[in-house]
Each structure stands twice: as C-alpha cells, then as structure tokens.
Design a protein around this nucleic acid. Structure first.
Length: 319
DNA sequence: AACCTACCCAACCGCCTTCCT
DNA sequence: GAGGAAGGCGGTTGGGTAGGT
C-alpha cells in the first residue's frame, strides 16, 4: 500500500472526491483509498467533503451578526456540541462554528485581559465578594465555557468597576428586558426541537428570534424598577455603560436574574414543551413565594454559582 | 520595506460511538 | 456478545494573510 497523503488538497483530488460522491453518495469513504482513487484516508475524504466540497456551504463568508447570535445562544444551550449547533446553521459546518467560537474566545480573553486592572492601579470599586479574577490580573487567560460565563464576567465587571469596553461582538441577555418582563410569552408557538439541556448552566434566553425553541425567561420582579426606561439591549454599547453606572440600590433591590428551568427531555415534543412552560410558570410562582422581594443588592441576587462558570473548561463529554 | 501580531481556517489527531461480521 | 472497521466529533495545530508599527 502506498503512503497516505496528508496536507492541503489539490484541485484534482477534490474532483476525484466529488466524482466519487456523485456516483456513490457521501459514504464509503474508505473505498476511495482502497480503490486507489486517492491516497487519502477515509476520514480525510469525509472531512474534506463535509467541510469544503459539500454543496451550499458558505465558504469564505464571514458570520453574520445573526449567525453570531445564534452560535452564542446555541453554545450556551448545548455547550461545545459544534456538530449539533451547525445543524441549526445552514451552510455552516461544525468546523466553521468551532473556529468561530475559538477565535471569539481568544478575542474575548484578550479584551478581558486588557480590562483587568493592573496591580499598580488598584480599583476602589471592586467588592469584597468579587471573584478573584476581577480582583487581580491573572496571568492565565480565563477560560470561558459558555456565553453564560461571559455574561457573568461582563455583568460582574460592570457591577464592580467602572469597566468600559466595546463588547460589540458579545451578545448577552438583554437584562433590562428580563427585568421588565413580568409575564411569559407563552403564546409563542415553538418550533419542534429535541431538547437536551446541559445541567448546571445558566440558561438565559434571548429576545431575538432563533431557529430553536424560544424558551421564555422566568422573571419575577414584583415591581417596576426605578430605572425602567430601559428598552435597550445589552448589545447596545450604551446600555453597558448605563448598566455599569447603576448601583444596587439604583436597581431597587428587586432584581433577580432568573435561572432557566431544567429543560426536561424525553417524552414527546409537544408535551415536553408544555411541560417546560408549566414548570417555568410554577417556578416563578414558587420563587415569588419563597423569596419575597427584599431590598438586597443587585449582585447578591445573581445566582450564587454564577461565578463558578469561570472555572476551567469542563469536558463536554461530562455534560 | 521589513517585521510583528492577530486572526482565520484547513486539516490532522485521538477518542468515542455505531455498525457490521 | 466480541472484536474490528468505519464514521462522527471535539480539540488542537500550523500555515497563510491582513493590518499595524
């Protein structure tokens, strides 16, 4: 048997592969080599087809803002299940999504690194409860596991310091809308989707349309806030500045960032959706009863474990 | 113009799962 | 049911390139 060829594909090789797929379909990858058509492994052939030669791929096209948002939200929902995420994104491969996410993480880590106060300039506004990451510059990049991590980081940054930065590519939950929301948009029709939640994740749902179930966020803010003229979203950079200026008391002490329900899986699709909705409604009522709104600080009303997500990456297989 | 840096992306590697015998 | 092959997937790497100094 001749040597297995590696490295970049040549046009001729692509043509052979395309010809094979036309003839036999996208399968029997190993036969391509066994027939002597190409000196590539079956895996390599498959990868080439899936990532580059498959029809309708958006090769060389940058991710649109909408696509970015979709990836961010789906990543928060599914974790690093790139193949799964890619199924919601026409023309994008798991590799595309993976590369996008990875470069985004690097970019974000850099932003965070640059934004962490230097030891020579101690920040006076950092609360005692703030996570270590925010208190001291870390040599190692924080490993963000999901956009929930980013939210936690960004929000905490805004709560604890006069942090300003341009997070134009970071799409977070539009908190003000959550704050405003007192009812659940249960009238929304949900597109079918199998649900596999990742445990121990903050699932805060976006306000923009997505090709997957738009699970409403449970909010239980009993009364309107002082600063309720907040129609803007977090993706609005002005909002971040605004948000950063608010103190806990400004927010009326009634802010609770909700945790999404434990998105149950199994059963049939429809009953599962109904179940989720009902569960969320119940959680809302229950929480309202169990945790009467008290004049507490804004930061204290975040989920207790929200900073846990700054921990090093967990193996996706562990979810 | 040369160098440096950051970013993008194609492709490989290794592990896991599924399928077939 | 066991074992091997093939396929699928996530993590990682390295080359190319654009932009900045």
């Amino acid at each position: 048997m001749s040597e297995i060829k590696k490295g970049p594909w040549k046009e001729e090789e692509d043509q052979v592969l395309i010809k094979h797929v036309k003839k036999y379909g996208p399968r029997d990858w190993s036969s391509i080599r066994s027939k002597g058509l190409l000196q590539r492994t079956g895996k390599s052939c498959r990868l080439r087809w899936v990532n580059k030669l498959r029809p309708n791929l958006k090769n060389g096209v940058k991710f649109s803002a909408e696509e970015e948002r979709t990836v961010i939200e789906l990543q928060a929902q599914f974790g690093n299940k790139w193949a799964r995420i890619a199924t919601y994104m026409p023309g994008r491969t798991d590799n595309d999504v993976k590369n996008f996410w990875s470069s985004r993480q690097k970019r974000l880590a850099k932003i965070l690194r640059n934004s962490v106060p230097q030891p020579s300039k101690p920040q006076k506004n950092i609360s005692k409860e703030a996570p270590d990451l925010l208190k001291a510059p870390s040599v190692e990049e924080p490993k963000l596991n999901s956009s929930a991590d980013e939210r936690a980081l960004v929000v905490s940054q805004h709560c604890s310091s006069s942090y300003t930065n341009n997070f134009d590519t970071i799409n977070m939950v539009p908190l003000p809308e959550l704050v405003n929301s007192t009812s659940l948009p249960f009238d929304q029709e949900l597109p079918p989707l199998e649900f596999t939640p990742s445990e121990k994740k903050i699932c805060i749902w976006p306000q923009f349309p997505l090709p997957f179930p738009h699970i409403p966020v449970q909010t239980n803010f009993g009364q309107p806030l002082e600063h309720q003229e907040l129609p803007m979203k977090l993706e609005d950079s002005d909002f971040l500045d605004y948000f950063g200026q608010l103190s806990a008391s400004d927010l009326g002490g009634n802010v609770q960032v909700p945790l999404a329900p434990s998105c149950s899986s199994g059963q049939d699709q429809r009953s599962s959706e109904i179940g989720v909705k009902r569960e969320m409604a119940e959680i809302g009522v229950k929480r309202e009863m169990e945790y009467p709104l008290t004049p507490d600080s804004f930061i204290n009303d975040f989920p207790l474990d929200m900073f846990d997500y700054i921990d090093p990456l967990q193996s996706p297989s562990g979810w």
